[in-house]
Amino acid sequence: MKEQLLALQKACLDAIKKADSSNALQEIEVKYLGRKGELTAILRGVKDLPDAQKPIVGKLSNEVKTVLEEALENKSKELEKEELNKQLQDDTFDITIPGPDRSLGHVHPLSQVQHQVEKIFNSMGFMIMDGPEVESEYYNFEGLNIPAWHPARDMQDTFFIKGKHDKKHGRMVLRTHTSPVQVRTMEKYGAPLRVIVPGRTFRYEATDASHDTTFYQVEGFMIDKNISIAHLKGVLAQFLSSLFGKEVTVRIRPGYFPFVEPGLEVDFSCLICGGKGCRVCKYTGWVEFMGAGMIHENVLKAGGIDPKKWQGWAFGFGLTRLVMMRHGIDDIRLLLGGDLRFINQF
């Protein structure tokens, strides 16, 4: 009897092992454990056994039953899992279907770069100043040591406002640079100063791919007791390295602007070729970037600052040009053109 039970257990376990579907498993269960199943038959026959054998066979039969039930349960879970897996594998869901529209708007590239510039200088202790865009001749020119005969005063460069005149201020202009804010800030706060002035500027200039009546500049200046050209070099190298995210070197050479003395032109090492010379830098290794210099004593005086006690430098660069350079924009008119096909790229 014992042998018969063990043989049955083995045969059933083998069958379970081989079963490859829930149906097959069901049949096995019926065959062995069903009402007319083989094990059931044996269990039923226990009552006819001699008394001595009854408990032994009965116990063994129940043990076999438990083993088989467990095996069936496990196999059933296994098969279910396999079947689910197969079902999931066969799914035809198309992940390339576009999702519902959640598009964001766009911030103008000039705003983005201006913000970045402001953050860098702010972190170096520079305050950010604003000034009027409609400006007086005094602040735009005289205060900056640009006397009436200077070429920059010609009608060809400056927009004038009709019918505006003042004894001190002269005619009214659209500021041709952000520099007037130098004198305004000096008047307001005195020395020392660390300031940048990003802003909109205007030139009376025929429009083409590289000229527009309206563009953006960033003015920067620093005034303290011992501020030098070496500091200008240092601060600008820091700024440019931060801006471009890589080490940038700065080259200074002589230049002429009436509101600074010495006057400087500032170039930075070409980011494309690293200074070896390429098409972008016209094979010079340097990219022309800004005008700068030590603030002219007449400008300090105009701002009420004593040039014997204080000294400092100023620089100005084209934010518009920087944006064009960074993003490879070849037509300046796109920036104020407001074409969303352009704006939506940023």
Binding site: G125, R194, D224, I227, H231, K233, Q238, R251, E261, E297
Partner: peptide, 30 residues
């Protein structure tokens, strides 16, 4: 003016010889 002479001196001396340095200023936030 004196600054005009400063320019004469520095440009012949060479701007490339002027080493980039950062100013030694207080860290008060702007």
């Amino acid at each position: 003016i004196e600054d005009d002479l400063v320019e004469e001196i520095v440009r012949i001396y060479g701007y490339d010889k002027v080493k980039a340095t950062l100013p030694d200023l207080p860290i008060t936030p702007p």
